[in-house]
Amino acid sequence: MASSATTHRHSQTRRESPREWRRFKFPESLYRWAGVLLGLVFLSYSIIYLNIPLERFFTMFGRVGALITDRYYPPEIDYVTQPEYLASVWETIQMAYLGGMFGMAMAIPLGWFGSYNMTPHRRFVYPLARFVTMSTRSVHETIWAILFVTILGFGMMAGVLALTMFCIGFAGKLFAEEIEAIDMGPVEAIRATGASELSVMVYAVFPQVRVAFTGIGIYTWDVAFRAATVVGFFGAGGMGWYLKRNVLQIETLRVSAILVSIVVLVLIAEGISAWARARVAKAK
């Protein structure tokens, strides 16, 4: 059908002018233009609705440049090399590590329960596990941080729990997808030996997903670290707290130094994570 329409269109193209040629795609073109028009209307409506000052937008680049050179440059590097700040960096790393560990410990069973092929119960456990991963994932890590700070008070416990929630959602979904992609042959074979479902997981599923899980775990930790740099902004411990304090005190040179330190740390974390993942992938 589609190919005959195409040839038909081509034969017409040769004979007639380009303006006429468009008419032969009539129904689709109408939808397409309607779609584009709708998009444009939504776009301009959004810009008006959100009160976005376009004139400011176009002069913005100069202003941002000026702002950076005037107020944020040079970053006060001394501030971020003092022991107190470095201690908070270490705390951030620990928070991310713990959050990653706890999150992973919960994400693995959730991944199992939330994978359609391996879940112990498709009508009850599966949707429940899916719902838990979905909701932990949907709530942003900063919201988790704020909630835990409100309930538990300032400190790293709130941060660790917030990152745990984040990791549960992040890794749980990826784990479930990984389990859904396994070869079911060995699963059947192990089931056929009379093994319990736990044994089936350990012998038939886990060996198949181990490498992928390790990679996902490292990646999750890397992303959690990124999040860990900011949960402190809402009182949940780590370097984010310094960011908040200096933002509030308009210590812009210190803020830029902190930002630089965050970028450097995240780049290092990402480097390590990429290296470790490449190694794991090679080890198979």
Binding site: N51, I52, P53, M60, L67, T142, R226, T229, I262
Partner: peptide
């Protein structure tokens, strides 16, 4: 690598409060 909250802080400083 930079968290959206940090980016937002930066742009709030640059273009002011608001959706932009």
């Amino acid at each position: 690598s930079i968290h959206e909250i940090v980016w937002a802080l930066f742009f709030v400083a640059a273009v002011g409060l608001g959706a932009l």
